[in-house]
Design a protein around this nucleic acid. Structure first.
Length: 553
RNA sequence: UGCCCGAUGGUGUAACUGGCAACACGCUUGAUUUUGAUUCAAGAAAGUCUAGGUUCGAGCCCUAGUCGGGCAACCA
């Protein structure tokens, strides 16, 4: 796990508030809108909100911000709850903004009575026009000075379904010339004759974000309402509403959202990838969604570690995708079971090993964890090794198998290649080798020393499987900065499906097992895997100094 | 031509709140290794956006700029 860091600015604020006796106990909330699946950026927010409460002995509510019935669905609610729990967090209360619709309506009435809100019959275009621009003040509309009585009646009629969608809105009465656009009489309620995933057809008026979020925070006694930077200008309105309503003063604090190289976080665009079948679903292992990352094989521990390492601040950031990979490897190294898998085979025949003979050779399951013990691997005279692990004419620093050269077969014997057999195209089809019986792993008396160790699998015992090799979904580093269609930036090589030959021990593989295919990468079983057809997802490759060395040329 | 945020090695985050700029990822080199993994050791890399000011002393405070981001949905 990450080293101790100094406190982030939010921890400082909470610490200060607690020490000053401002609160007995802090309450935070994680407030997703159930209109899509959670992604790694949400994981940052989850770790922050739940982590902060945990560290300071407070509590966290899970609250769905479900104020827009046309985009929200129960499927999303379920996936969000599953993801939060998978990450290792438990909420004190499961709440919905829609739980508060009655109360919120009451708040709106209160505002009208105080002369701080009015019903506006203008069209959205007219409202936008009256609003002005950031550099030009807005102007008052013709409905701004209706009487309290008239507003009360109209708002009540809005609720009763007397008006069509879009024909009227309730707006706060603040200041059309305010330098903050959000304070220019923001819309509080709009009419939507739509079915809501929880309240059904009870309502045809729904509160806007600004009139639901802060009020929900207040109702729940949330002390520290933490959101991302784009809500900074909303804070003034957040406070205005709380003050006008004279309700519990929750406070809003903002942090910079997560950006990651080669990654697109926009929910709308992720939905598009799903709808247009560019990916297999929200949980496609290439997706930055929590469900995708989970299916890819990352552990919740590694995601939490990642969120810890990236830190929390207010400046825009761009996290290297490599950091997530590092966190993935760091944990997987400790828990993954080592296995031998050959993905691009060359057949090796050991000419001095008796045909038909089989030996069972023990090999440790995880050198990082003695308690995982070892397994037996069958060895015979015909093996597969990786095509990459042989070169007829190797460069100086190559220390795998070459013609006339020696390598050790992991957990088995040292072999020497004596003959290369090729097809008519010159492609190597078979290597004929001899082995040294006295070089057996664990009881090597051969006196031979070789630099290279390679993995292998017995032809007679190998099990065929499918491996899915993933790479970044996009090949543009900063997907937030593109101006053209994001589909122009898709990486055509983000998924490669291959056959592989795996050791027979995999017959005992379980869904949650994590594996290290020795010398290649970390893998897990995909949900589509069956006992008859094993399917593996590559979570992340191993670090590869040799590949780096080769690139240098 | 407004208002609001922000600015520290390549990246991210720190700096006991005014006292020799640190940690992690990445990078380089070496050791160990029956995974070119892991582990271990060493190293390169910023003088803190700029210019002034306050101070014995400024990354931290003040002033003015510069640059980057956000704000004109009946989305959240």
């Amino acid at each position: 796990m990450a080293e101790e860091k100094g406190p982030n600015f939010l921890e400082e604020i909470v610490d200060r508030d607690l020490k000053a006796g401002k609160y007995q106990e802090i309450i935070t909330r994680f407030p997703p809108e159930p209109n899509g699946y959670l992604h790694i950026g949400h994981a940052k927010s989850i770790c922050l909100n739940f982590g902060l409460a945990k560290d300071f002995n407070g509590s966290t509510n899970l609250r769905f911000d479900d104020t827009n019935p046309v985009t929200e669905e129960t499927e999303y609610v379920d996936s969000i709850k599953y993801d939060v729990r998978w990450l290792g967090f438990e909420w004190a209360n499961e709440r919905y903004a829609s739980d508060y619709f009655d109360q919120l309506f009451e708040f709106a009435v209160r505002l009208i009575e105080k002369g701080l809100a009015y019903v506006d019959d203008s069209t959205s275009d007219q409202i936008a026009e009256q609003k002005g621009t950031p550099t030009k003040p807005g102007v008052n509309g013709p409905f701004r000075d209706r009487s309290v009585e008239e507003n009360l009646q109209l708002f009540s009629e809005m609720k009763d379904g007397k008006y069509k969608d879009g024909s009227k809105v309730l707006r706060a009465k603040i200041d059309m010339a305010h330098t903050n656009m959000l304070m220019r009489d923001p819309v509080l309620y709009r009419i939507k004759h739509a079915h809501h995933h929880r309240t059904g057809d009870k309502w045809c008026v729904y509160p806007m974000y600004d009139f639901a979020h802060g009020q929900s925070d207040s109702i729940e006694g949330v002390t520290h309402s933490i959101c991302t930077l784009e809500f900074v200008p909303h804070r003034e309105l957040y406070d205005w509403l709380i003050n006008s309503l004279e309700i519990f003063p929750s406070r809003q604090y903002e942090f910079a959202r997560l950006n990651m190289t080669y990654t697109m976080m926009s929910k709308r665009k992720l939905l598009q990838l799903v709808n247009e079948k560019i990916v297999s679903g929200w949980d496609d292992p290439r997706m930055p969604t929590i469900s995708g990352i989970r299916r890819r094989g990352f552990t919740p521990e590694s995601i939490r570690d990642f969120c810890e390492r990236i830190g929390v601040a207010k400046r825009d950031n761009m996290i290297d995708f490599g950091l997530l990979e590092f966190c993935g490897r760091d944990h997987l190294n400790k828990i993954a079971l080592r296995r031998m898998v050959v993905m691009d085979p060359i057949k090796v025949v050991i000419t001095n090993y008796p045909e038909g003979k089989t030996e069972q050779l023990p090999s440790e399951n995880n050198p990082e964890d003695e308690s995982t013990g070892s397994r037996e691997i069958p060895f015979g005279n015909a093996l597969y090794i990786e095509r990459d692990d042989f070169m007829e004419n190797p460069p100086k620093k190559y220390f795998r198998l070459s013609l006339g050269g020696m390598v050790r077969l992991k957990s088995a014997y040292i072999i020497k290649c004596e003959e290369v057999i090729k097809d008519s195209d010159g492609r190597v089809t078979e290597l004929r080798c001899v082995y040294f019986p006295e070089s057996k792993s664990g009881s090597d008396t051969s006196g031979l020393s070789v630099k290279g160790v390679i993995h292998w699998v017995s032809v007679a015992h190998a099990v065929e499987a499918e491996v899915r090799l993933y790479d970044r979904l996009f090949n543009t580093e900063d997907m937030g900065a593109i101006e053209d269609d994001f589909k122009n930036h898709l990486n055509s090589e983000s998924l490669k499906i291959q056959k592989a030959w795996v050791e027979p021990e995999f017959r005992n593989a379980k869904a949650d097992d994590r594996f290290q295919f020795m010398r290649t990468g970390y893998f897990c079983l995909d949900k589509e895997s069956t006992p008859d057809k094993l399917v593996f997802n590559r979570t992340v490759t191993l670090r590869d100094m040799w590949a780096k060395e080769q690139k240098k040329g």
